[in-house]
């Protein structure tokens, strides 16, 4: 008898026991990833604002004290903005054109855009430096030398914009390409054309709003890359934020960590805002609001 009861108890445990185990174990990977991501950040925050165990924002005084930080920050923002504009302004029309009129060229464009993925960034930097140096060596005042100088202007290093556009291409190409596949592009473009719009107007007013997800991804990927890219900027001797952080870390390590934390949080905040606004401006979101206002009108009328 006793043995039987034990069996029953066991089977009872078996039905509920593994359930709980599974439910908790499902969270394990999530927790592991969360720890993996947050612990370094938490440590940096602790290191930045608890020097010697007491809370202090002293490390952040570098923001007001070191003018080179503000310059590096504004330079980085400018580079990021320009990179996004150049990337979108070239890639979207090119992809629309290929999808509409030259589908056979798409694989070629894809290979071209994916190429930067197989070339290490440092190799790209070396190539760019070689080119710039060649330009500078053509003699003072010569056209190649002037172009070389113009591209390396420390206030606005256009050479970095160009290089970052190339580095972003493989990822943004895929995202925008996939986005264009999900919409009835030809029908949209024809519908817009017959209503009088030029192809540029159509891209701006119809195509881009309908591949919002791909556009947001492209913008954020580009932002993240521009904020974090170190090797090329350093090799070209341009003071962007990552390069500034590296330089400062040798004499004021705590300040460099403090700013890195700030940058990290700012990027997260940006991402968060973007996700929210994407929701808000998505057709579904706007449709829900339209429905809501209709209900209100009806309620007011009755």
């Amino acid at each position: 008898m006793g043995a039987v009861t034990t069996e029953a108890e066991k089977s009872g445990q078996q039905t509920s026991g593994p359930g709980i185990a599974v439910r908790t174990s499902r969270w394990l990977p999530v927790i592991a990833v969360a720890l993996y991501v947050t612990i370094p950040v938490l440590c940096s925050i602790y290191y930045a604002v608890f020097p010697g165990g007491n809370f202090s924002l002293a490390a952040y005084s570098v923001i007001t004290e070191d003018a080179s930080l503000a310059a590096a920050a504004s330079r980085t923002f400018l580079i990021t903005g320009l990179t996004i504009v150049v990337l979108v302004a070239t890639l979207v029309p090119a992809l629309v054109a290929v999808h509409l009129w030259a589908p056979k060229l798409r694989p070629i464009l894809e290979i071209l855009c994916t190429l930067p993925l197989v070339v290490p960034p440092i190799a790209i930097a070396a190539g760019v430096i070689a080119l710039l140096r060649w330009g500078a060596q053509q003699g003072r005042g010569s056209v190649p030398s002037q172009i070389s100088q113009f591209l390396q202007n420390p206030d606005l290093p256009l050479i970095l914009v160009g290089t970052y556009v190339v580095l972003c291409l493989p990822f943004t190409f895929r995202s925008i390409d996939a986005g264009l596949r999900t919409i009835p592009l030809k029908a949209m473009v024809e519908g817009s054309a017959i209503l009088g719009s030029s192809i540029w107007g159509t891209i701006w007013r119809v195509v881009i709003p309908n591949i919002r997800g791909s556009m947001l991804f492209s913008v954020f990927f580009t932002t993240a890359l521009c904020f974090g890219e170190f090797s090329i900027a350093a090799t070209l001797g341009q003071q962007t934020i990552p390069v500034w952080l590296y330089d400062v870390s040798s004499n004021n390590f705590r300040a460099s960590i403090a700013i890195a934390v700030l940058l990290n949080l700012a990027t997260w905040a940006l991402l968060f805002i973007a996700t929210l606004s994407a929701d808000r401006f998505s057709p579904a979101g706007r449709a829900a609001r339209a429905e809501h206002s209709l209900q209100k009108q009806k309620a007011a009328a009755s």
Binding site: P184, A187, M188, E190, G191, S192, A193, I194, L195, G196, S197, S198, R205, V206, P209, N210, R212, P283, R286, A290
Partner: peptide
């Protein structure tokens, strides 16, 4: 070119712009 012909067209698949309200669709032209 189509956009300079001043012709109106209705397509089999409607081809409305999904990102715009009905009002905005009609206002588009």
């Amino acid at each position: 070119t189509p956009n300079r012909r001043g012709i109106g067209m209705v397509f089999q698949a409607y081809s409305l712009f999904p990102n715009m309200s009905v009002q905005d669709n009609v206002e588009y032209g």
